[in-house]
Amino acid sequence: MSISKKDQISQGALRAFAQYGYSDTTMDSIADVAQVAKGTLYYHFKTKEELFYHVNRKGVEMLIDSVTNAMQDTSRPVKERMLGVLDEHLRFFSEHQEFCLLLLSYTSGDPERDQMVRTLLADYFETVEQFLRELQRLGVINAELEVQTLASALFGMVGFTALRKIFRGEPLYTEETRTALISLCKGALAIEH
């Protein structure tokens, strides 16, 4: 199945932004990476900033969908869903390494653009925090633990593990990595091993 020109451009932009960062990525380089004519690029996206926003929004939406599916996985007992969410984060970053690089390692250098990314991530954090509050209500997570910190710790623990492995050229979604992260999560949340 062929992808639309807009998706082709989006994928090329993601690769370019992840490889060069925002400042060093040009519309010409995006057209080259996406293998589209500049006219086609400008037909779909008028500016690099519009394209940067589109790529980040699409990536964060995919992350939210992925994590939400793990949260709603009724095939797992409720006590194991948190571990499934952690595992889903790792799988997502493994399958979307360029987005992981873009999201976690590059700032655009512009306070407004960086605020835009933070705003997009606010939706992600609200989704995860809602899930963690529900687990607290059910007694799965200690009621004394602050949910915002837990959500940040989960994101940071998996995200920066993924980022380090990407930078080192190491496989990301391995049993060893999963076991280490799940073990940390179990210890922090007092889930039985």
Results as ranks from 00 to 15, higher is better:
Ala13Gln: 04
Ser66Asn: 04
His96Ser: 11
Val55Tyr: 11
Lys58Ile: 14
Cys185Gln: 09
Lys5Phe: 09
Leu83Glu: 03
Glu192Gly: 05
Gly187Arg: 03
Thr149Val: 13
Leu163Ile: 07
Arg81Gln: 03
Phe92Met: 05
Tyr22Gln: 05
Glu134Asp: 10
Cys185Ala: 12
Gln136Cys: 15
Arg168Val: 10
Ala190Met: 10
Tyr42Ala: 07
Tyr124Ala: 06
Ile3Trp: 07
Gln72Pro: 00
Met1Gly: 13
Glu170Pro: 06
Ala70Cys: 04
Leu51Tyr: 01
Asn56Ser: 11
Ser183Asp: 14
Asp114Ser: 09
Phe125Leu: 09
Ser4Tyr: 06
Ser183Asn: 15
Glu98Asp: 15
His193Glu: 04
Leu163Asn: 06
Lys48Trp: 11
Thr127Tyr: 01
Leu145Pro: 00
Glu175Arg: 08
Arg15His: 13
Val78Thr: 10
Leu150Met: 11
Ser105Leu: 08
Gln19Val: 03
Gly12Cys: 09
Thr47Glu: 00
Val67Ala: 12
Leu63Val: 10
Leu184Phe: 15
Thr177Tyr: 07
Pro111Leu: 10
Asn69Lys: 14
Leu154Tyr: 05
His89Leu: 10
Ser4Asn: 02
Arg91Phe: 08
Met27Leu: 15
Tyr22Val: 02
Glu61Tyr: 12
Leu104Gly: 08
Gly187Phe: 09
Arg76Ala: 03
Thr149Asn: 14
Ser2Met: 08
Leu150Ile: 15
Arg76Glu: 05
Asp24Asn: 14
Tyr22Thr: 02
Glu61His: 12
